[in-house]
C-alpha cells in the first residue's frame, strides 16, 4: 500500500467513523436528514464513477435509481418478496438496466450520449406511468411498515435507518476508492483524459466504459432500493428528469472525480435548500445564485477546491 493510498483509506475510514459518531449527538431532525443525504449521496457516488472518473455525462441517471426503487418496490408489492431479497433485486435491476442502456448508448459519445440517456430515462418514466395498474403511476405507493424489516432489524426505526444508510454509503465509498486505486480505475481515468490514446494503447474502451456504467447503475439502483425501504415510498417523481439533473449537480458541486465530492455536494445542496427555505419562499432563487457563484469561484467543486489548495493527495 502506497502512502497516498494509506492516507486515502484512513481519511475515508475517518469520515465513516465521524458519521457513525454523529448518530449519537445529532438532534432528531438532522439525524433524519443525514440518513436521507447518505442514501442520496450513494446515488451521487454512482454517478461519479461514470461522470467523474470515466468522463461519461449521463442525463438519464434517474432511470437507474428508479430501476432499483421499482425493482424493490414492485417485487414486495406484487410478489410479496421480503425486504432483503427485494433490495438485492433492486441492485440487480439497476445494474441490468445500466448494462442494457450501456450496450446501446455507448455507441455514442459526448452530447449524443447525454441525449440518448435522457431519452431512455424519459421512456422509463413514461413506462411507469403507462403501467399505472401495477405502479400507481405518479401517485406511487407505500411499502408497508411491517414489511420493511430485515431479520430483527426494523428499517423504519431511526437508528437502524441511519446505520443502514451509513452502511450503504460506506460500501459505495470504499468500492469507489478501491476502483479508482485499481488498474481498472486507472484505465477509466485514462479514457476520461484521452479516449483515443487509451484505445491506441490497446484497451477495449467500450468494455471499460460498460463496466463503469454497470457499477454506476448498481450503486444508483442500490440507492433507489434503499431509499424506498428506508422511507417507505415508491413514486414516479424519482424517475423524472429532475432526478437525473440532481446527481450531476451534486457531483459537480462537490467535485467531480473526488471520492468524497458527491457526499459533500449532496449535503451542501440539501442544507442550502433546507436553510434558505426557512427564511424565504424564494429559496430556489438563493439556490440558483449559489450555484452560479460556486461555478464562478470554485470551478472544480468544493472538494476540488480542497484538493487544489489544501490536500493534494485527496483521492
Amino acid at each position: 500500500m502506497s502512502g497516498a493510498t494509506r492516507k486515502g483509506v484512513v481519511l475515508h475510514l475517518g469520515v465513516v467513523a465521524l458519521l457513525a459518531g454523529l448518530q449519537f449527538v445529532l438532534p432528531a431532525y438532522h439525524h433524519g436528514n443525514l440518513a436521507r443525504v447518505m442514501v442520496l449521496a450513494s446515488f451521487a457516488l454512482g454517478y461519479n464513477v461514470m461522470f467523474g472518473y470515466t468522463g461519461l455525462l449521463s442525463l438519464g441517471h434517474a432511470m437507474f435509481f428508479a430501476a432499483g426503487l421499482y425493482g424493490m418496490g414492485l417485487a414486495m408489492r406484487h410478489l410479496g418478496l421480503p425486504a432483503l431479497p427485494a433490495l438485492a433485486l433492486g441492485v440487480l435491476c439497476g445494474a441490468a438496466l445500466a448494462a442494457l442502456v450501456g450496450l446501446l448508448a455507448l455507441r455514442t459519445a459526448g452530447v449524443a450520449f447525454m441525449i440518448v440517456t435522457l431519452m431512455f430515462a424519459q421512456t422509463g418514466y413514461l413506462t411507469i406511468l403507462y403501467f399505472g395498474a401495477f405502479t400507481r403511476g405518479d401517485e406511487g405507493f407505500v411499502i408497508p411498515r411491517a414489511a420493511r424489516r430485515i431479520g430483527a432489524l426494523d428499517l423504519s426505526e431511526p437508528t437502524t435507518r441511519y446505520f443502514a444508510a451509513l452502511l450503504l454509503l460506506g460500501l459505495c465509498l470504499f468500492a469507489t476508492l478501491a476502483l479508482v486505486r485499481s488498474s481498472t480505475g486507472r484505465v477509466l481515468i485514462a479514457i476520461r483524459e484521452n479516449e483515443d490514446r487509451a484505445r491506441m494503447l490497446g484497451y477495449d474502451v467500450f468494455r471499460y466504459k460498460l463496466l463503469a456504467m454497470v457499477i454506476s447503475g448498481a450503486m444508483a439502483g442500490a440507492a433507489g432500493a434503499a431509499y424506498g425501504l428506508l422511507f417507505g415510498y415508491v413514486g414516479a417523481t424519482f424517475a423524472s428528469v429532475q432526478y437525473s439533473i440532481f446527481p450531476l449537480l451534486w457531483v459537480l458541486l462537490g467535485g467531480a472525480g473526488t471520492v468524497l465530492g458527491p457526499l459533500v455536494g449532496t449535503l451542501f445542496m440539501f442544507y442550502l435548500i433546507d436553510l434558505s427555505s426557512g427564511f424565504t419562499s424564494a429559496y430556489m432563487l438563493i439556490a440558483g445564485v449559489a450555484l452560479v457563484l460556486l461555478t464562478l469561484f470554485a470551478p472544480r467543486g468544493l472538494m476540488g477546491l480542497v484538493r487544489a489548495r489544501l490536500v493534494p493527495w485527496l483521492p
Binding site: 406511487g140 405507493f141 423504519s156 422511507f231 417507505g232 415510498y233
Partner: peptide, 12 residues
C-alpha cells in the same frame, strides 16, 4: 403523491 410520500414518515 406528496401525501403518499409523506404519510409513512408521519406514521413513524
Amino acid at each position: 403523491h406528496v401525501v403518499i410520500g409523506s404519510s409513512p414518515r408521519a406514521g413513524e
